[in-house]
Amino acid sequence: MQIQQAHPSETATVAAVLNEAAQWIAAEGRPLWSPADIAPERIQKDTDTGNYFIARTNGEVAGVVRLDLEDPYFWPEIESGTSLYVHKLAVRRAWSGHGVPALLLDFARERARSLGRSFVRLDCVADRAPLRALYERHGFLLHSVVHKGERGFARFELAVAPLAT
């Protein structure tokens, strides 16, 4: 599987994966992203700045992830330049069970390492036990739970070993 930065012209591709995931999660009775979170103009902004990455096998899109250099909303106390933040990790249903989330998280760790960042950090709704278990299986440690409005969010972090010199 190859993971490459999404080009601005691939906004529709990223949006399709995010919308498919959002519909599946909502159909399960666990809505996650608001329409504004995955609106085309928001996705375009993030593809324009190079924050989205697409996982493909033989040209077929398997999943996407957004990687941010800062996250003052969920991690306001973290020193700038120390972490890479994972957001909007989504896998197409056809690729469920093929380890795509693990590959995207591995990619995030290696990207953080290449950027000299000491941590990969992410958050999820605190009551999402399967998602929390996925992150923990991948080596992320629970940092804390914060409340934003009426929802609790579990914040996870993964220490990144520096590049060997």
Rank of each mutant, 00 (worst) to 15 (best):
Met1Lys: 12
Gln2Met: 15
Ala6Asp: 00
Pro8Asp: 01
Ser9Ala: 04
Ser9Tyr: 06
Glu10Met: 01
Glu10Gln: 02
Ala12Met: 05
Thr13Phe: 02
Thr13Leu: 05
Val14Gln: 05
Ala15Gly: 09
Leu18Asp: 00
Asn19Arg: 03
Asn19Leu: 03
Asn19Glu: 02
Glu20Arg: 12
Glu20Gly: 11
Ala21Arg: 01
Ala22Phe: 07
Ala22Met: 10
Ile25Trp: 02
Ile25Asn: 03
Ala26Thr: 07
Ala27Val: 07
Ala27Arg: 05
Ala27Met: 04
Gly29Glu: 03
Gly29Ser: 04
Pro31Leu: 05
Leu32Cys: 10
Trp33Pro: 08
Trp33Lys: 05
Pro35Cys: 04
Asp37Ile: 11
Ala39Pro: 14
Pro40His: 11
Glu41Arg: 06
Ile43Phe: 00
Ile43Ser: 00
Gln44Cys: 06
Gly50Leu: 06
Gly50Val: 06
Gly50Ile: 06
Asn51Cys: 13
Phe53His: 06
Phe53Gln: 06
Ile54Leu: 07
Ile54Lys: 09
Arg56Phe: 12
Thr57Phe: 15
Gly59Asp: 00
Gly59Glu: 01
Gly59Tyr: 02
Val64Cys: 10
Arg66Cys: 10
Leu67Cys: 08
Glu70Trp: 05
Glu70Gly: 08
Glu70Cys: 07
Asp71Lys: 11
Tyr73His: 15
Tyr73Asn: 15
Phe74Asn: 14
Phe74Cys: 12
Phe74His: 14
Pro76Asp: 15
Glu77Gln: 13
Glu77Val: 07
Glu77Tyr: 09
Glu77Asp: 12
Glu79Asn: 06
Glu79His: 06
Thr82Arg: 07
Ser83Gln: 02
Ser83Pro: 02
Val86Tyr: 09
His87Phe: 15
Ala90Ile: 04
Val91Cys: 01
Val91Lys: 02
Val91Asn: 00
Arg92Ser: 08
Trp95Lys: 13
Ser96Val: 10
Gly97Pro: 03
Gly97Phe: 03
Gly99Leu: 03
Val100Arg: 09
Ala102Pro: 03
Leu103Pro: 09
Leu103Phe: 14
Leu103Arg: 14
Leu104His: 13
Phe107Arg: 15
Phe107Lys: 15
Phe107Met: 15
Ala108Leu: 12
Ala108Trp: 11
Arg109Val: 14
Glu110Val: 13
Arg111Ser: 12
Arg111Pro: 12
Ala112Val: 15
Arg113Leu: 05
Arg113Asn: 08
Gly116Gln: 10
Arg117Val: 10
Ser118Cys: 10
Ser118Asn: 10
Phe119Ala: 12
Phe119Pro: 10
Phe119Tyr: 12
Leu122Cys: 09
Asp123Glu: 06
Asp123His: 04
Asp127Glu: 12
Ala133Cys: 03
Tyr135Leu: 05
Tyr135Pro: 08
Arg137Phe: 07
Arg137His: 11
Arg137Leu: 08
His138Glu: 14
Gly139Glu: 02
Gly139Tyr: 01
Gly139Gln: 02
Gly139Pro: 00
Ser144Lys: 15
Val145Met: 13
His147Val: 12
Lys148Leu: 14
Gly149Thr: 04
Glu150Ser: 11
Arg151Met: 15
Gly152Asn: 01
Phe153Trp: 13
Phe153Arg: 13
Ala154Gln: 06
Arg155Asn: 08
Phe156Arg: 02
Phe156Gln: 04
Glu157Gln: 12
Leu158Val: 02
Val160Gly: 03
Ala161Trp: 00
Pro162Tyr: 00
Pro162Leu: 01
Leu163Val: 14
